[in-house]
Design a protein around this nucleic acid. Structure first.
Lengths: 158, 158
DNA sequence: ACCTTTATGCAATTCAGTTGCATTATGGTG
DNA sequence: CACCATAATGCAACTGAATTGCATAAAGGT
């Protein structure tokens, strides 16, 4: 990646943080930058590993930064399908509700952009006594890559 | 609950286990019975606590039994919204896809039976390169009870 | 510079879940 | 019945993610 691009991304992160009244510390900028550069949500471990390469930081600090970013709406947190959260940038535009696909083989997560998914939360809310704040649709299965790699080996039952 | 009911449930559990070729051990029958009596999915901790009252067993044994039950399709495992799984009986009839509601305040889970939820997995599958095996819709929010308790605090009503 | 607040680091802890291995049923065969 | 094989359970120790408490460093305001 060109240096100018990185700088631009950094500026983006900085202004995002400032918009939310958050101190744009180097650590926060880095975390936000990593999330912004990723096409899919990342686990804290993945973020942590990426950080180690250029900008090592304490695990706890990462958790706390993610916590702050989520609390201020800069980052979305979704169920991963195993036992951990994944983090990704919140779209600035009204966040289009889309399913996430979780590969039970490699543990990877993908965003699924599909028409035909129109769940009317409002309709549910009409009859549901609690307060619905968020909806998450998760698809479980085997991703394209694992499917391909698996086809030859796959023999017999599991 | 009447003794006859309990016995009937026990018989149910036993025959379910036998149907799947599983040894209907007392522990397994107990776990299945607890799940069958619960209107909503339970965490291993909740199941464990219930077991302690009449039928104490080792944590590990519970985990292993749940594992076996899930593997044989007797029990469904869903994401809880915090970090743990919840377990519930699989409906014998073709399991109607329904959302689960997760209360971020008390951590409770409820099944939501709502019309107006018609996600066409088949439509997604047409354009999605991976293999979709399962879909989960999770609603997050505040449940009726927590909502009420929360209002009471705010308004001072008792 | 001084002090307060904020951000980060480090060590220790929690908690769910898992693994390895010993022990106890259970079932089948001679 | 004795004997062995297997399945089921228990116990202890371990893992890995996440959290907490407290110490230290950095940033901001007067």
């Amino acid at each position: 990646m060109e240096k100018a691009d990185r700088m631009a991304h950094q500026d983006d992160s900085i202004s995002l943080l400032k918009q939310k009244g958050l101190n744009p510390t180097p650590h926060r900028v880095m975390v936000l930058g990593i999330l912004g550069n990723s096409p899919s949500p990342l686990s804290p471990q993945e973020i942590f590993a990426t950080l180690q390469r250029f900008h090592p930081m304490n695990r706890v600090t990462l958790y706390r930064i993610l916590e702050v970013l989520v609390a201020h709406g800069l980052v979305e947190r979704i169920q991963s399908g195993d036992k951990a959260y994944r983090y990704g940038l919140n779209a600035q535009s009204p966040h289009a509700e889309h399913p996430h696909f979780y590969c039970s083989h490699c543990g990877g997560i993908q965003c699924v952009h599909a028409e035909g998914i129109h769940v009317q939360v409002e309709d549910i809310q009409k009859t549901f006594p609690g307060l619905i704040q968020k909806m998450e649709i998760r698809l479980d299965g085997i991703c394209k890559n694992c499917l391909r790699n698996h086809k030859q080996k796959k023999t017999g039952n599991a």
